[in-house]
Design a protein around this nucleic acid. Structure first.
Lengths: 120, 120
DNA sequence: CCTTTTTGTTAGCTTATACTAACCTTTGGG
DNA sequence: CCCAAAGGTTAGTATAAGCTAACAAAAAGG
């Protein structure tokens, strides 16, 4: 099952929220991303079907190995682009916003090389 | 009328083709981008309606001031990201592909500042 | 215990962006 | 001069990703 920009964003959000607050349920995603409950519910269903996460008896979202891998990759990109933009003088809010879009647009290969070049 | 990633790509392609071969018709776009004729036709219609281009009696696509402005902005981003990635060791083909996606994801403000920072 | 709130799902809609199949023009060579 | 090719449009379809309205189930607390 393919993963798209949207799915990457959900996985990243789950990772971030897990680090911040331990267990993460759909409703936490709901509050963190600004999407409606049905959108979250639908996205979580797709990620489950794709093997990126599982839902336990308490409704907690658990990243699988695959899901965690993707989430960490995307989050690393997020941080890199945010740092770069802030270093260039962009204010934090905009830097985050733009990083959040760029992170889905670049290939892993380009990212690795560019990061090595700029921060290596 | 709003302009999306897709529209930006068409405008950029028109600009590039104009520079390379003078007049540009839909069929030239057709060959340059790998989309079907109806997709091109539809996109051109939307760009016309949005005031980004006009079509003359010969079917040539003429960028308006607005259209040219957008096209040049996007093309500048395209060139910047391609250069950066190539400088980081990414091969040209992938650099172009990734640049082509990143160019739509970044805000003008972030782009200006980042370009100034990296290429002074 | 019953009611309200919290949480999640279903059903159905919208929009951006692509596609194919089929059709209509215009144009240009034999 | 006619027929084929080239160029472009129409109609209908698909998919990713969001939305609202309405419902269902579970938890919480007076």
């Amino acid at each position: 099952m393919a993963l798209y920009a949207s799915g990457e964003d959900y996985l990243e959000a789950i990772l971030v929220l897990q680090r911040k607050m331990g267990a993460v349920r759909s409703v936490d995603l709901d509050r963190h991303m600004n999407f409606s409950k049905p959108s979250i519910s639908n996205a979580v269903g797709l990620l489950k079907k794709g093997g990126f996460l599982e839902v336990d008896g308490n409704g907690s979202l658990l990243l699988t190995g695959l899901g965690r891998e993707v989430a960490e990759q995307i989050y690393e990109r997020h941080q890199f682009f945010t740092r770069q933009l802030i270093a260039a003088g962009v204010d934090e809010k905009l830097a985050e916003e733009d990083a959040c879009k760029i992170e889905h647009a670049i290939s892993e290969e380009s990212f690795r090389k560019w990061k090595a070049e700029l921060e290596g």
